[in-house]
């Protein structure tokens, strides 16, 4: 049953109609093309341009964001375990404060490490949209509320999401996408492995839809790439970065080899120049 629940959640989250704001983000792809990249691209097809960008973008995104997804998910998992371990009448507010503290510390570090402003802007916009999706799109519908009784664990975790949203509204924390994704998928009981994989898959897929909107590839071409090019890439990058951490939840931490990092300095510059484009259709 657990597996069926997870599969159903996976289907919901991979729906391309989810209102997460990713359709206005190109993660620097629009700027990359506008600036005449990749170098020597006149001799290349628009399809190879799209593939090259997805490869470089996914590599740097996996190494810089996945550690935050993983740690946010782990923190939620720890919280759920502590709730399950306590008796019905124990006050959960202490571990709740701990979880909120971990999440906002992760959020602040991601903010301090995400230094180009269009990327910061896109990340917080999508993070907040995800949490809104959770509270508005995953709560019980009014007519079924009475027969859908949430358990203690669900009540506590929903409270965490509400409190984190309040912290974002009060500007006490930023609400960056990788942290919100880890929180959301942890809350919905998606396993860490699936959460990591789906996060990178969605990044790659939104680059493909950006490519369609930018007239680089057609909708069928995008579908071909999603099946034959994105799949091995998402698998390879997930497996390379699945054990990377932020260092915030661990006492032993080999930061030089296992910590978050940007791997594409050129991508940083191009993404940072997004707003300088004379005309543009994306927000990042």
């Amino acid at each position: 049953m657990e597996g069926d629940d997870e599969t159903y959640i996976l289907l919901l989250l991979s729906d391309s109609n989810l209102p997460t704001g990713s359709f206005v983000a190109s993660a620097g792809f629009e700027s990359y093309l506008k600036h005449g990249f990749p170098a020597g691209s006149n001799s290349r097809s628009s399809e190879t341009r799209t593939i090259a960008f997805i490869q470089d973008s996914l590599e740097t995104y996996a190494r810089s964001a996945l550690p935050f997804v993983s740690d946010a998910h782990r923190a939620v998992h720890e919280f759920k375990r502590s709730i399950d371990a306590t008796s019905e009448d124990t006050d959960a507010s202490l571990s709740m404060e701990e979880l909120l503290h971990s999440l906002s510390t992760l959020d602040q570090l991601y903010h301090d490490m995400t230094l180009n402003h269009p990327a910061r802007r896109a990340s917080t916009a999508q993070g907040v949209a995800l949490l809104t999706l959770f509270t508005k799109g995953f709560s019980a519908p009014p007519s079924l509320k009475a027969s859908l009784q949430p358990n203690k664990r669900a009540i506590s975790i929903n409270t965490v999401v509400d409190k984190f949203k309040t912290m974002i509204r009060r500007e006490e924390t930023q609400g960056h996408l990788p942290i919100c994704w880890g929180l959301l998928t942890g809350t919905l009981n998606l396993s860490l492995e699936r959460s990591q994989y789906l996060h990178l898959f969605l990044h790659a897929r939104s680059l493909l839809s950006a490519s369609v909107r930018l007239n680089e590839v057609g909708p069928y071409g995008a579908q071909q790439l999603l099946l034959h090019a994105v799949r091995p890439l998402v698998e390879a990058e997930t497996s390379r970065c699945r054990n990377k951490k932020t260092g915030i939840l661990d006492e032993e931490f080999d930061e030089l080899n296992a910590g978050p990092a940007t791997t594409w300095p050129l991508g940083e510059i191009l993404a940072g120049r997004h707003d300088l484009q004379h005309s543009r259709i994306f927000n990042s």
């Binding site: 590599e59 490490m113 698998e235 390879a236 910590g259 978050p260 990092a261 991508g267």
Partner: peptide, 26 residues
């Protein structure tokens, strides 16, 4: 906190060509 990492260690995502450092920084 800016952390930059360049490694000569492209992932194997066959059938995609491996992206070397020079490919992505050209």
């Amino acid at each position: 906190k800016d952390v930059m990492l360049l490694e000569d260690d492209p992932v194997d995502a066959s059938p995609l060509p491996r992206r070397q450092l020079r490919d992505k920084l050209a």
